[in-house]
Design a protein around this nucleic acid. Structure first.
Length: 307
DNA sequence: CGAATTTGACCCGCGC
DNA sequence: GCGCGGGTCAAATTCG
């Protein structure tokens, strides 16, 4: 199906950009990847408010800490960014009090039980399940107990300029749904971390403003190390297929001031030189684990938003 | 053959 | 109270 964009085409004519791909495969096209990242919260506070903490040696590492609401809140030291109603990630508008949503939100609350891999024993009483037609009744069962919508935990959104939708960030994800979203012509894909004990979810969608940009929203925190990155000795973003990563803020408001970075042919992150030297100098120094690499295209920005 | 993806249906929360 | 939109499930399908 790698060739048939028609698969997702039914939604809104997602077209060629919505290329289906097995995330593990087609690792090609790594060259020229450039990734910037920046705390979005900078827009709320001073010029410095959004500096990504030095505790993280890589994006993946960063993600792991960042996805912890408490950690994130501490690092941001500023009000989280709440997207405007029309924003690409506007669905995440539920304001979350960082310190109130921490406990149990990441792993426990994620367990919706009734999944393929992990059949839920409880509620098994009614077992009309053997019969195929009972699919709906099962869903109804689900509604009775399990499918309580948990309050949204912290969500972190990255805007990534990439030809592929699903970026390899070092974790294994399984797609469990796809939906057309209201304010976008492109469908949104839903992924869940395949690790049994990990309930982290990921939403991937194309930016309405810039179809070449993929907006990835992480929800929850990984309860395990990255299988791929760990193998390499350090956790890092595997930005397979990434051309550019932009700040959502940039996409929407054309702000300035990014932390430029890039990836080498192995997908490892570099800090990149930028036209805004001061920003680079300042922020790159806070990323002990990142190497400064000159000569990679500065045409990329990556950022996160606490939504 | 096992695993991952696709896809349509269902459920729920929220706004009107 | 109703309808819309977002999020999730799971059977069917596809792929490695």
């Amino acid at each position: 199906m790698s060739g048939s964009a028609a698969a997702g085409g039914e939604d809104h004519g997602a077209g060629q950009l919505y290329g289906n791909h097995r995330h593990a495969a087609d690792g090609g096209d790594v060259l020229g990847n450039n990734v910037f990242f920046q705390s979005h919260s900078a827009c709320a506070g001073g010029d410095d408010g959004g500096v990504i903490p030095s505790t993280y040696s890589s994006i993946t590492d960063y993600l792991q800490g960042l996805l912890d609401p408490a950690e994130l809140a501490r690092h941001l030291d500023a009000p989280p960014y709440f997207p405007a109603p029309g924003d690409v990630i506007g669905e995440a508008a539920t304001p979350v009090t960082p310190n109130s949503s921490t406990s149990g939100e990441a792993t426990g609350a994620e367990s919706h039980g009734c999944k393929r891999g992990s059949p839920s024993p409880e509620e098994g009483d009614e077992d009309g399940s053997a019969d195929h037609g009972s699919c709906r009744s099962e869903k109804k069962k689900m509604k009775e107990g399990k499918r309580e919508k948990k309050p949204r935990g912290s969500r972190v959104a990255f805007a990534t300029k990439s030809a592929v939708d699903h970026l390899d960030d070092g974790y294994r994800w399984r797609k469990y749904g796809q939906k057309a979203v209201k304010n976008s012509s492109f469908p949104r894909s839903y992924y869940r971390c395949t690790a049994a004990q990990c309930g982290v979810k990921k939403l991937v969608e194309r930016s309405q403003q810039d179809p070449s940009t993929v907006v990835t929203t992480y929800e929850g925190r990984h309860a395990h190390p990255s299988p791929i990155a760990t193998h390499r000795g350090s956790r890092m973003l595997m930005a397979t297929g990434v051309d550019t990563v932009y700040s959502l803020d940039v996409l929407q408001h054309q702000h300035h001031g990014f932390f430029p970075a890039g990836t080498d042919v192995y997908g490892r992150m570099y800090a990149l030189p930028s036209t805004d030297a001061s920003v680079v100098a300042h922020r790159s120094s806070e990323y002990g684990g990142m190497q400064v690499h000159a000569g990679v295209l500065p045409d990329a920005v990556m950022s996160y938003e606490h939504v």
